[in-house]
Computed example of a mutant assay.
Amino acid sequence: MSQPVPPQLVVHCRMLHFGWLPADPEAVAATVPPGLRLRDDRRVFLQQYVVDDAVQTSGLDSYSATGLGPELDLPDSGAARWYTQHLSSSPLAQAQAAVRGVPAGAGRTTIEITGQALVAVAEVDGAALIRTTARIGRQVTRVYRGHTRYVSRLGDRLTGACCPYVFEPVTPFEIESVEFLAPDHPVFALRPANPLELLWGFYSPRSSFALPGSEGWSRY
């Protein structure tokens, strides 16, 4: 398998990361191929992040990205994730995702903070797709560290990547709203229920992770 860029390390980017119950569970289920089992509640994850400087990466330029999709329940390893969309401002990051079977596209993500108010917006061709508003504090009292498994499809095969991470979430933290603004875009199928039913989440101004992590082929 050709790789246009080698594995990358990203350190201390600004990341908003959370999950919810969807408005249309069957639409979420339709985004994954047969043979992969979703969580019973069809929960969805979203990550919006900004890498402000190229020196925060091992070989990428500064960039921003939004990725989302349903969480999986695999018989061999339990929890995993499936990207339905990964929108990045970096052509190198897009190519790295696409060669591993992730639905990658061009997009821009901004995270603006004024006082305790945070607004994160994902855009494609200048049109806003997802806008998240939150209230955040500045205190960091704990560290999240571990590995997250992602599954993607390349041709007739499925591949799994185990991605290490270290996140430093702030407290307090509260999501106020999540708006999906483009009904004609594929991401709209993953919109949250109304009223919003959040399952977990955080904002971390110092998020570090590897792309893509360790890899292995499997038919699951």
Rank of each mutant, 00 (worst) to 15 (best):
Q139R: 14
R149S: 15
P4M: 02
S2D: 11
V151W: 07
R81K: 05
W82G: 03
P164W: 09
D52Q: 09
R131S: 11
D76P: 00
T110V: 09
V44E: 12
F209I: 00
F173Y: 08
L118S: 05
V99W: 15
I111F: 01
C13V: 08
A210T: 14
H17M: 14
C163N: 08
P91M: 12
G105H: 06
A27F: 01
V170G: 08
G126K: 08
V55F: 07
P172M: 03
Y203G: 00
P164K: 10
S88K: 01
L21E: 11
A93W: 03
A97Q: 06
L92Q: 15
S208A: 13
Q3N: 01
L129M: 14
V99G: 15
Y220K: 01
A127M: 04
A54H: 03
W217E: 13
E123G: 01
S214A: 13
W82M: 02
G19K: 02
R138H: 15
G213R: 05
G115N: 03
S90D: 14
Q8K: 07
G19R: 04
Y150Q: 07
L196H: 08
D76Y: 00
S2K: 06
Y150P: 01
Y63H: 09
V28S: 07
R142Y: 08
T110E: 09
G59M: 00
V10Q: 05
F202C: 13
F173D: 04
R14L: 06
H185T: 07
E123W: 03
R43K: 03
S64D: 06
T110H: 01
P91F: 12
A117I: 00
L211G: 02
L74W: 06
R145Y: 14
T66K: 00
V102R: 13
P164Y: 08
P7K: 00
T133I: 13
S2V: 03
V151E: 11
L196V: 06
V121Y: 03
M1C: 08
R43H: 09
A161C: 10
A95Y: 14
G146M: 11
Y144R: 12
A93S: 14
S177N: 14
R153C: 07
A54R: 03
V124M: 05
V170S: 05
R149A: 15
L68T: 05
D41G: 06
T110K: 03
F202M: 11
